[in-house]
């Protein structure tokens, strides 16, 4: 699909009047002003800024964990088992005598890597299938829709357990396996958003009018509808990023996600929970970090959606 061109066409000033819209002059840059309005809305939204700050901190932690801790999360001594806070080990030590704070900080990296990569994968698959289903309609749409039905016929975590179990190899840390698992199983919502956006745009009156005036519907769609649906696409992906991070933790918690020495909040929670009576901190801190990360991305997605669609408030 020659889609990248379609999107850049929005930015480039058009030389020809674009069908019925062109006649009304100013309104031809509506997509941009919608984004502009949304940005003005977003700037005033406190939840947006809270989530932006949270996301920034987490990304920083994932990229340069040494900024936050100088301790080595893998340097564990059993002598420290369930020890209290000392020096830079602000959160004390866990069952194996590892520095809980260091381990929690280092846990951000795998969460973010798996989250972003799996979401990108889901986004690419969803974009491709959604556009194809919406644009071609007919049997392409039918086949893809039935495919989505089948995907949705398997409860997500059950499918993920089976798939991840299948993909993970004996010696690896499971990052690639989990990324593939999540990407392959979560593209359906992104595909649905794109599909309905394309179909809705095909039925718009001015697209029909434009077609009669000789403009190709494809160009009209690309110019007027895709920019708007891109917003909801991004919203879906932002929220998906949050839930994929949660899913990674869940899979790791169950033992079908990251493994073999990989550092993950899910594994930390799994290891700490049998000892919750003895030591709460090894359980509580990864939980808080995980929840905050997921919350940050979901809030961000929520805030963007509210800005683009004020009537939902």
């Amino acid at each position: 699909m020659s889609d990248p061109n379609a999107i850049t066409a929005v930015e480039a000033p058009s030389l020809q009047p674009a069908g019925p819209r062109g006649r009304r002059g100013k309104s031809s840059d509506k997509p941009r002003s919608l984004a502009g309005d949304a940005w003005i809305d977003l700037r005033r939204n406190k939840i947006f800024w809270v989530s932006v700050v949270l996301v920034a901190v987490i990304l920083l932690m994932a990229a340069w964990p040494t900024l936050f801790t100088s301790a080595d999360p893998r340097a564990c001594t059993l002598a420290n088992q369930h020890g209290g806070a000392t020096g830079t080990a602000y959160f004390g030590y866990d069952f194996q005598g590892c520095d809980v704070f260091a381990k929690t900080v280092y846990g951000a990296r795998n969460s973010i890597i798996v989250g972003i990569m799996s979401t990108l994968l889901a986004g690419v698959i969803g974009l491709f299938f959604g556009l194809a289903a919406g644009y071609f309609g007919g049997w392409v749409d039918a086949v893809l829709s039935r495919g989505v039905d089948i995907m949705l016929g398997i409860p997500f975590l059950l499918g993920a357990i089976v798939l991840s179990n299948r993909l993970v190899t004996e010696k690896s840390d499971g990052v690639l396996a989990v990324t593939l698992t999540l990407g392959l199983l979560t593209w359906t919502s992104a595909a649905r958003v794109m599909r309905s956006a394309v179909i809705a745009s095909k039925n718009q009156d001015y697209v029909a009018a434009g077609r009669m005036l000789g403009a190709t519907p494809y160009r009209l769609m690309a110019r007027h509808i895709l920019p708007n649906s891109i917003a909801s696409f991004i919203v879906v992906l932002t929220i998906l990023l949050g839930t994929n991070i949660a899913s990674e933790a869940t899979l790791s918690f169950l033992g079908v996600g990251l493994k073999n020495d990989a550092i993950s909040w899910g594994i930390s929670i799994s290891e700490a929970s049998p000892y919750a009576r003895v030591a709460t901190e090894p359980l509580v801190w990864p939980s808080i970090f995980l929840a905050a990360t997921v919350l940050a991305f979901i809030m961000l997605g929520d805030a963007i959606r509210d800005a683009f669609d004020p009537k939902l408030r």
Partner: peptide, 22 residues
């Protein structure tokens, strides 16, 4: 609802057990 929505079950279940159960 936003907070609950963002709470993965792997966080909620152990924490609930810890706080309300233990």
């Amino acid at each position: 609802t936003l907070v609950v929505l963002a709470m993965p079950i792997v966080v909620l279940a152990p924490l609930a057990q810890l706080i309300f159960g233990i």
